[in-house]
Structures are given as C-alpha cells and as structure tokens.
Nucleic acid binder design. Structure first.
Lengths: 228, 228
DNA sequence: CAAATATAATAGTAATACTATCATATATTA
DNA sequence: TAATATATGATAGTATTACTATTATATTTG
C-alpha cells in the first residue's frame, strides 16, 4: 500500500453524505474522530452532540455533513470495504494462477487489520474493529431494501462478487460461489468477534486463525483443476 | 414436536426478566405481541409504549416484566435457540451413525422455520424471522462481556457446542469444530437474510438452499471415517 | 372480608435526534 | 478592497424515547 494510498480516494455513493467530508478539514475531522469515538463507546452511545463537542465544533455543523449517525456508519463501512477492495485488487491483479490468486484474496480479506497506513485521517485498525462490531447494524434495518436500491451497499456487494469470481475461476462447477464468498466475508468478521468475546465458540486463537480456517473451508469445497 | 412441546418449558436465565412472562396472562401477551410487533416494525421502532397500547395494557406494566427492550430481545432469542436446541436433541438422539446425526442436525439448524407449532403463544415462524433480522444486535454491544458473564447467552453457546461435538464425532482430528459450528449457525441466518434482501450475494434460491449449501460445506471439510 | 399483590393511569425527567434561526468567520470575486 | 457568498458556530426549540415514581384501582389469596 504505502504512498500509493495517498492519492487514491475511495469513491463513496454521494447520496450517503450531504456534503463530502473529504472536501474540508472539518469533514475529515468528523470522520477521523467519529472512528475513535464509535470504537471507544460503541455505536449506540455515540451521537453527533458528543462528536461536535469532541472536535470542538458544533452538533449542527456535523449535521451538515451527514443526515444522521446511520448514514455516517454507512459512510465509514463503505470506506472500509472500498479500502479492502482496493487492497484486494492491488495485491492479486498480477497473480495468474487462480488458486494462488484466491489464496491471496482470502488471506487479505480474513486477516485482522494490524497496521494503520498513517497516510490518511482514517485509522484503519480501529475502523476494522468498528466493522466487526457494527457492520451488521448498517443493513439489519427495515430500510435495507430502499437503501440497497439507492446503492448504499454497492462497494460491499462488488467485493463479494469479486471474491465469488475468484472462486469460480478455481472451480467453475461449484454451486455456491456467491454464498461461499458472502460466508467468508461475514463469517470472518464473526470469527474475529467471537475470538474477542466468545472464545469457546471459535478455534481461531493459539492454534488457528481465521485465514487458515477459511482457506481450508474454501479449498475443501472446491474441486481444483487436476492440471493446476 | 407436536403435543410434546405443550408441556415443555424453555428454561431461560432468570436474570433476563424481572418477572417470568410465562407465569401470567399479561406476561404471555407481552411475549406474544412483541413478536408480532418487532417482526412488523423492526426492533428499532418497537418500544414498550407502543406494545402497552397494542395489548391494551400499560407501558409501566410491561416494565415490570422486562427492564428494557434489549432484555426482551434477549428473552425472545434465548427462547428461540432453546426451542431449536430442543428440536435438535429430540430429532437426533436416537441416531447412532455420527454422519447421519450431523446431517440431521445441519438440516434442522439451517432450514427455514415454516410452521407455527400452534401450541404456545409464540409464533415460531415470525420469531425465526426476528432472529434472522435482529439476533446480532443482542450481542454486538458494549455490554457483551458482562452480559455473557451473567449467562445471557448460555443457550446459544450450548447449541454451538452441541453442533461442534457432532462435528468432532465425525472427524476428531478436524482443527476447527467450534468455528465451523458457529459459522453454520450464524452463516445460516445470514444466508436467509441475503436471500430476502441481497439476492445476488447468495445462491440459496431456486437451485440451492442453505441446508444443501452448509451440508456440503461441512462434509467437504471433514475426513469421514473410512470404515463408516 | 382484609390484606397483599398485580395492574393501570398519570405525571415527570433526562437524553436523543433532530430542525430552525441567526450571528460570525472565512473565502471568493467583482 | 469592498461586496458577497459560503461555511461554521451558538443557541433555542420540538417530538420522541426510555425510562422512574406515584397513586389509584382491580384481582387474588389467606
């Protein structure tokens, strides 16, 4: 990644925000601090009044960027998935062998985010924790279908599709490429969550980790090309 | 199931409620109507004032049974998982062959709830929809660890463990029995959700279904006993 | 029938999730 | 550089939520 990310802007559906937070200092401060705050106090306790106070700005100013905290969550998680997608495409585009490509993709998508790239106002380590703890809440709502039609989840959907395509490239006859791809992405978040809060429900600690687990899971499901 | 369920009471952690809703008519009405309401309007819009009005009782009366709507959700989802556990144990206890047993368990746990048993005030079909749409919200909170210590999730954890044991009985050398069990349970809810809202992210519709998908996924991961 | 208990009705509070208005600071452009 | 546009800040206000507290009225039980 490194320097490259400096000039890359994750393209997020314009309907998610009122004013592009990337366009101003205040906007970037909103995004930056909201990540710290949501991470520290959880999405439920977080609100725009607290955020305004924290950034020494005002509640009403925050509302000029995002309609409400749900939209802000959509923004943050879209950014995260866009960032993962970028890393995925970048890291796999020059790999020819479909199995190697898929293996690399799975590693990227299932491993814990450990380092903050430090090139933007966004702390990727904390953001990935937010995604683990809060992403489901962004779509488990009564408004999913309308918001989906508005395109609020395109980036995530594209990521699932990319993974699904890689799966198909290893085994074109497999019946459940989309289900497997969505299981890996969602299941990975879940295993990371269990590791932190329900240890007994996962084996991803000392003697195992999500990457190894999901890599096995996927490859055992696929009939690999006998020539490959 | 049928008549048997009439006399079976799902044992739920007493700390989840203030007064056992099973002990009174009002309590059962609270549970019964809350399922209909949460299903119809979603957990976010649901509240005790609306529930009180709907059952022609009072907000304050509802608060004598449950501290807040989060506890009510814990109650409902615990009941659901207790019910699934009961069905699981009942349906598999006389199966000797580990593979057959696991197969049966997977079918039970991944298939959509289609029929309301009609023996209690609880509509299992709607409750299963609530679990699909809202279960994650019951544990994706800042209070998980304390609530987990209080035993609010024991039933679910026991269910995962049971499934994990069945997996181990098919392949004792498999490294990830707990992860696989938790993936199946959580992943199954997710696939059902995707089927309803993000069709393109799943293959569980015309030519596939969660049971078939997860059965394949699990058995492809396990080295079956060559003698079995 | 009295006493205990459950439920209902009403009121009240602090916090949330906003909207509206106006003042002020900063940037743009004529 | 003055005029103007735009962004931000400060303050106030509203409806709703998530409760708590109190008192009144049923209903059950001893």
């Amino acid at each position: 990644m490194d320097k490259l990310l400096q000039s890359v802007k994750i393209g997020i559906n314009e309907k998610i925000y009122i004013k592009d937070p990337e366009s101003t200092t205040l906007g970037r401060r909103i995004v930056e601090e909201s990540i710290l705050m949501i991470n520290a106090m959880g999405f439920e306790s977080f609100n725009f009044k607290k955020l305004g106070a924290k950034i020494k700005s005002n509640e009403s100013s925050v509302y000029r960027y995002f309609e409400n905290k749900h939209k802000l969550l959509l923004y943050l998680t879209s950014w995260y998935w866009g960032w993962v997608e970028y890393k995925l495409v970048f890291a796999t585009h020059n790999i020819q062998d479909p199995e190697e490509k898929l293996k690399k993709a799975l590693a990227l998508v299932t491993s814990a985010t450990k380092y903050d790239s430090d090139f933007s106002h966004i702390n990727e380590v904390l953001l990935s924790k937010i995604v683990i703890n809060e992403y489901s809440k962004s779509y488990l709502t009564k408004e999913v279908d309308t918001e989906n039609k508005e395109g609020y989840f395109v980036i995530y959907k594209r990521l699932v599709t990319r993974l699904s395509e890689m799966i198909k490239n290893v085994d074109g006859n497999y019946t459940y490429p989309n289900s497997l791809a969505s299981t890996v992405l969602e299941g990975s978040l879940h295993q990371h969550f269990l590791k932190d809060h329900f240890e007994s429900l996962t084996d991803c600690h000392e003697n195992g980790d999500p990457t190894d687990y999901f890599t096995q899971l996927v490859f055992n499901s696929l009939n690999k090309n006998p020539n490959g």
